[in-house]
Simulated assay, not measured.
Amino acid sequence: MQMQIKFLVLAVFLLTGMALSVYFKKLTVVAALNGVLCALLVYAGAGFTGIALMTTFFITGTLATSWKVDLKRSLKVAEENKGQRKTSQVLANAGVAAIAGLMSLIFETGQTLWPVLIAAAFSAATADTLASELGTVYGKRFCNILTFKPDLRGLDGVISIEGTLIGLMGSALIAYIYAIGFSFNTSFIIVVISGTMGNLTDSFLGAWLERKGIIKNDAVNFLNTLFAAASAALMWYL
């Protein structure tokens, strides 16, 4: 009975979230359906804490994207389609976490690892989104992450001290929620560090490959979260 109640609560929460995200044009219908699928896999790997992590990423990212949008438009760095996410963007940000959840269903061993990887992936995704969206607004000096020479705000691979610190706070927020759901131990530090590393990797790939048109932003975001999860796994085993 308790299990049935949990699934009922989960179903109501996810369906409500899907309906609201479509109604307020934050996700396309197909993107929302894929978001629910990702959420179910995340739940398999990290329970309701995983859902809380994914929800936190989505809410903070949505708010950050909408923050001072007129200024971003004037700087020509605002999200297209008023920030409405497509399926590719959902999978780019939540795909690695969903894969970790799927692995938890396939493999009986490492059950304490999968939640850490899920948290690391969302830590990187949150850090990247906040650093990009708010760093553009509050950054003072912008430089290319490859050369550290001054560069234009909003371009791929351009960072600022303010944006990097905001991203660090995003990683810490995800790590804090993870720790509430599981425990305050070394995993908290792992999630913060791996999320920050993923965020910086995102900027590195943006300056190196995305500017050249070799890969696009969705691929950069997916690799960002993948690198964060891989880094977390390495630190966890060490």
Rank of each mutant, 00 (worst) to 15 (best):
L105D: 00
I106Y: 13
F107C: 08
F107V: 10
T109P: 00
T112R: 14
I118A: 04
I118Q: 03
A119L: 10
S123H: 10
S123K: 08
A124K: 06
A125I: 01
A127Q: 11
A127F: 13
D128K: 09
T129K: 07
T129Q: 03
L130A: 04
A131G: 07
S132F: 02
S132W: 05
S132L: 04
T136D: 00
V137I: 15
Y138S: 00
G139T: 06
G139V: 05
F142Q: 03
F142V: 02
C143I: 14
N144V: 07
N144L: 04
T147G: 01
K149W: 07
K149D: 04
K149S: 07
K149E: 12
L152Y: 15
G157Q: 14
I159P: 03
E162C: 00
G163L: 00
L165K: 01
G167E: 00
M169R: 02
M169T: 11
A172G: 09
L173F: 14
I174K: 02
Y178L: 04
Y178P: 05
G181V: 12
F182S: 04
I189M: 05
I190W: 09
I193H: 03
I193L: 12
S194D: 04
G195K: 09
M197A: 15
M197P: 05
G198L: 01
G198M: 01
G198D: 02
L200C: 11
D202Y: 13
F204V: 12
L205W: 09
G206H: 12
G206E: 07
L209N: 04
I215Q: 03
K216T: 07
K216P: 00
N217G: 06
D218Y: 06
D218K: 10
A219M: 14
A219S: 14
A219R: 10
A219W: 06
N221Y: 12
N221I: 11
L223E: 02
N224P: 11
